[in-house]
């Protein structure tokens, strides 16, 4: 187990290093000098000079790479060329918003998805089960930002029930709650589809599972059979899909946050790309990649704790 944990963490770091090298190298792979590439053709000479100095672009390549890694390791992701503030500060200012949005989205999706999955299992093989199946696939298929636009039109513009923009007044719980409903709805709906299908499939598999039959055949009470024997097996794929789903939620958040002009990683990133604010783009990508790797690695280790079969293979 410990062996597996160390290997898994080492792999995460290795991947992060490859990603950093990729991000670093990207600017150099494109023809033209890095500062112009990073800032765009319309940037003023002063801005360019500032960037060259900040990023140490006038130094040898190897020095730059070492400096880049050393800085990143100490949390220095560079300086926002527009606001002149450290990139990490800019990110940390909006990251909690996106994290909250992601958690609320996956939270309601879990409740609804598990509920629908259970309904499908209870009514398996019936017309209702088939309708739910088609509904789940449709929920997975529809782009979240279209849901966001439609719900914005209906609930904010036409009905006026919920705010159309922003994340609510700071410190006002109800205002923040009202502001998060529509974005969380738009992001979560895809996951309702995924989770209901997953729950249905894994529960059906368990109903027929031989080892559940064994537990019953040896007279274990239903409570022990369900809580100790069934749930332990059923929970594993759910953890896996939620961790991987975080990546999906991030990409939905980019679009949905823009639709609702909600401050967060998505809106930060979009405006940085539009303004070609390369330090912010690069810093955000690194930050989010590290965050994503952290969650996936933790989930993998948790899964390996719960499922001994995974431990034997590093990339199960």
């Amino acid at each position: 187990m410990l062996n597996y944990t160390i290997k898994r963490i080492a792999l995460a770091f290795l991947i992060l290093i490859v990603v950093m090298l990729g991000m670093f190298g990207m600017v150099f792979l494109v023809p033209g000098d890095p500062a112009s590439v990073a800032l765009g053709p319309r940037a003023s000479p002063e801005l360019k000079a500032l960037l060259i100095e900040r990023m140490g672009l006038d130094q040898p390549l190897l020095t730059q790479i070492i400096k880049f890694f050393r800085n990143a390791a100490t949390g220095d992701l560079g300086i926002d060329v527009w606001s002149k503030r450290p990139v990490l500060d800019v990110i940390m200012e909006v990251f909690p918003n996106t994290l909250l949005l992601g958690l609320v989205s996956i939270g309601w999706a879990l409740i609804a998805g598990i509920g629908l999955g259970c309904v499908a299992v209870v009514y398996r093989g019936t017309y209702l089960d088939r309708v739910l199946g088609v509904l789940s696939v449709s929920m997975i298929a529809v782009p979240s930002f279209v849901i966001a636009l439609y719900s914005l039109l209906i609930f904010s513009v036409w009905l006026g029930w919920l705010p159309a923009i922003g994340s609510g007044e700071a410190g006002d719980f109800w205002s923040q709650l009202r502001a998060i409903i529509l974005p969380a709805f738009a992001i979560g709906i895809t996951w309702v589809g995924y989770l209901s299908r997953l729950v249905r499939a894994s529960m059906l598999e368990l109903i027929d599972a031989e080892h559940i039959r064994t537990a019953r055949a040896y007279g274990l009470p239903e409570r022990v059979v369900v809580l100790r024997y069934a749930l332990r097996v059923a929970i594993i794929p759910t953890i896996a899909i939620i961790a991987v789903g975080l990546g999906g939620i991030l990409s939905s958040a980019i679009f949905v946050e823009s639709v609702f002009s909600r401050p967060g990683i998505g809106t930060l990133m979009t405006s940085a790309v539009q303004k070609r604010n390369y330090p912010v783009v690069m810093g955000t990508v690194l930050f989010m990649t590290a965050f994503y790797l952290l969650v996936v690695t933790l989930a993998d280790i948790l899964i390996a704790r719960l499922d001994p079969r995974v431990r034997d293979v590093l990339r199960g």
């Binding site: 031989e210 024997y229 097996v233 001994p308």
Partner: peptide
């Protein structure tokens, strides 16, 4: 009962 296939008869994660 001694079940046919012990591989599937035992719980895989306990």
């Amino acid at each position: 009962v001694i079940f046919q296939d012990p591989m599937t008869a035992f719980n895989p994660v306990l």
